[in-house]
Computed example of a mutant assay.
Amino acid sequence: MINFLKESTFTVKDVIMQAWTVTRDNYFSIATLCFLVFITVSTSTFMAFFMGELPTLVRVVMLLIFVLLYCIVNLSLLKYIFRLLDRQDDADIRIIDTLPTRTEIIRFLIGTVYFGISIFFVGILLLPVLYILDLILKFAVSQGIINNFYHAGKIIVNVAVAIAVLSIFFTFIRIIFFPFFIIDKHVHPFESIKFSLATTKGNFVKLLFILGGFVLIQAIVFGFFYIVVVSGFQLISYIFNYEIYSYVSLFTAIFSSFIVVPFSTALVTVAYRRMVKEYKGDEHPDILHNIV
């Protein structure tokens, strides 16, 4: 177990350092795509406040346009980082050359539907467990182990939330790599879900280390950023007697889009590449043998 943790820690360090190098050396190109993602999401959120009185057909068309734009920009970002990782020389990589094809966009949308169905299916599977838990707690109340149904209900809610969060988180980590297989390996949507399950099998602890390392770095950077911004706003408010604390959330969103998102995307992409290189499984993996 100790050797495994040492190996995992070294792998996580290597992944983080390579992701940092890619982000640092190509920051402005990656940030440009992240800026487009930020503009797309911000514009769609802003337009949502003004589309309430528009006809349903117009709202549906606008929604489809924003979804399409988000898919194009997001998939371009992934494809661009893939090109950076695969680059053999110092040849320039143009962003226009990383635009996803129509097939990739359609497969990504279908894969997203499969992704949502998988999360929903996990929730359905939890219902029998929660039902059994309810019966156990009712028995505990009848035997006097628990005082009343009020305390039993609180326990049921807390345990149910914990089980649901852990199960959904586990499922999320296992199948979140499906877009990478669609872009990198050109597989079909359902096949991408199966490949994500297969490649993350046996790498779950390493992914937790990667996620933990990223969260730690993000917490440090965000903490420093928040202290600097809040201190600056307090100084401005004190000098000019003008309340601008409402802009803190805007600055935080911009900071996240241009600092956190580029590095996190590179981090997940590098982790994907490492897992694929180490994958020794079948060319057509099945779900049942790769769940656990």
Rank of each mutant, 00 (worst) to 15 (best):
L5V: 07
E7Y: 00
S8A: 09
T9M: 11
F10R: 07
D14A: 03
Q18W: 10
T21G: 04
V22G: 04
D25T: 15
Y27L: 12
F28R: 11
I39R: 01
T40P: 00
S42F: 04
S44D: 09
F46N: 07
F46T: 11
F46C: 04
F50C: 02
F50R: 10
F50V: 10
P55V: 00
V58W: 03
R59Q: 07
M62Q: 05
L69T: 09
Y70C: 03
Y70H: 10
I72S: 05
L78E: 03
I81L: 06
I81P: 15
F82M: 09
D86E: 15
A91D: 13
I95M: 09
I96E: 12
I96C: 02
T101E: 05
T103S: 14
L109R: 00
F115Q: 04
I119Q: 12
F120Y: 10
F120S: 13
F121T: 13
V122N: 01
L130R: 03
A140C: 13
Q143I: 07
I145Q: 06
N148T: 07
F149S: 14
A152E: 08
A152K: 12
I155T: 12
V157A: 08
V161L: 13
A162H: 02
A164R: 02
A164L: 09
V165Q: 04
V165C: 05
L166R: 02
F169N: 02
F172R: 12
R174A: 10
I176N: 06
I176L: 03
P179S: 00
H186R: 14
H188N: 12
P189G: 00
S192V: 03
I193W: 10
I193C: 03
K194C: 08
F195Y: 14
S196A: 11
L197E: 03
L197T: 06
T200G: 11
G202R: 02
I210H: 05
V215Q: 07
G223V: 12
G223C: 08
I227N: 09
V229L: 14
V229C: 05
S231H: 06
G232K: 12
F233L: 14
L235T: 09
S237Q: 13
N241V: 03
Y247C: 03
L250Q: 06
A253G: 02
F255G: 06
F258C: 01
V261L: 14
F263W: 14
A266N: 11
A266I: 08
T269D: 01
T269L: 01
T269M: 00
A271T: 04
R273F: 06
R274E: 13
Y279F: 11
Y279I: 04
D282W: 04
D282S: 14
E283W: 08
P285L: 04
P285R: 05
D286Y: 10
I287V: 13
L288S: 09
L288M: 12
H289I: 03
H289C: 01
N290F: 03
